[in-house]
């Protein structure tokens, strides 16, 4: 007879083990071609942002008075000295865009971190809190959500005073209700599950159950939301910059660059087109990546 009959309790140990979570995630993520392209573009921008001083041919705010509004090199009058041309005061557009990537990533990262941590904290509390506190938090969030987000951000900046940091704080405040709602909903479904009750029976204190037991199981939708909020943050900062309420000139922030170049739309197309393209491509890449993340992480959409 066989040995397998005497130790049959775990046939899996001799055969191929099922794939690990990470591998399963990656295999379903890479199936989505748009998401992979988004990821590559995103990583490309990240690379540029980190290595900006090495990649940029010039400093972003050096003005070359002899070369104002020089077109890109392939156009008549352009030269390879300034690959993408210069702006009205003779700054190299390419260098400004490369440095601008830094700002965009910094903004995205900070805003998302701020909005996520605050939103998740409030969401977990709301999910576990007694009814009155839950109601209080959620109605507050409803109030924030009932304003057009950009308008609210504008008002906040107007109160705090226009600067890049204030713009970021304003955008974070506008974004965090989404995290609160999402987290609360996830917490409510998780907290009724048996493993949470088991942790309580095992003697877990409320704080531990909230953050060690339940929260890690709510992370998938939050990660997706964070990725998608990254693009909203970049876009909103650009919008605030464009309206003159965000980063102040001469900061090479893409939205501010757009605003500065507004008057040259007809005469020098490149000063508006390239910053706009950068915003478009970054936001599109992040959204594609976020969609891929959702498909791979959200079990409700998962094919089984």
């Amino acid at each position: 007879m066989t040995d397998s009959a005497s130790h049959p309790a775990s046939p899996a140990s001799t055969q191929k083990a099922p794939p690990s979570r990470l591998r399963e995630f990656w295999s379903s993520f890479k199936e989505n071609r748009g998401a992979v392209i988004g990821l590559i573009v995103f990583l490309g921008f990240l690379f540029v942002a980190i290595l900006a001083p090495l990649l940029a041919p010039y400093a972003p705010d050096t003005q070359y008075r002899d070369a104002q509004l020089v077109p890109p090199f392939w156009q008549e009058g352009g030269s390879t000295r300034f690959l993408l041309g210069t702006d009205a005061v003779g700054r190299d557009l390419l260098s400004r865009l490369i440095y601008g990537a830094r700002f965009s990533f910094f903004i995205g990262l900070l805003v998302v971190t701020l909005a996520t941590s605050l939103g998740v904290l409030l969401g977990v509390i709301a999910g576990f809190a007694p009814r009155w506190l839950d109601t209080l938090i959620m109605r507050l969030m409803d109030i924030v959500l009932s304003f057009p987000s950009l308008l609210l951000a504008l008002v906040l900046v107007a109160i705090l005073g226009p600067s890049l940091l204030n713009a970021m704080i304003a955008i974070a405040i506008v974004l965090q209700p989404h995290f609160v709602r999402l987290t609360r909903a996830a917490v409510l479904t998780e907290r009724s599950k048996d493993y949470v009750i088991a942790a309580r029976v095992a003697g877990g204190r409320p704080i531990r159950i909230m953050f060690r037991t339940v929260l890690p199981n709510c992370l998938a939708p939050i990660i997706v939301q964070a990725a998608l909020s990254f693009s909203t943050a970049v876009l909103d900062t650009a919008a605030l910059g464009f309206l003159g309420m965000g980063a102040q000139p001469p900061t090479p922030e893409w939205g501010t660059m757009l605003a500065e170049a507004r008057e040259f739309i007809l005469s020098a197309w490149w000063v508006v087109t390239f910053p706009g393209l950068c915003i478009l491509v970054t936001v599109l890449a992040i959204n594609l990546m976020g969609d891929g993340l959702r498909d791979a992480l959200d079990p409700k959409l998962k094919r089984s």
Binding site: M1, A5, P8, A9, P11, A12, T14, Q15, P18
Partner: peptide, 23 residues
């Protein structure tokens, strides 16, 4: 003894053989 074979541990012969006392 044992469990129903899954996707990764399908026996080559009779599918019940790993759990069968007569196999």
């Amino acid at each position: 003894p044992g469990v129903v074979p899954g996707q990764f541990d399908r026996p080559a012969g009779c599918l019940f053989s790993p759990r069968c006392s007569f196999a």
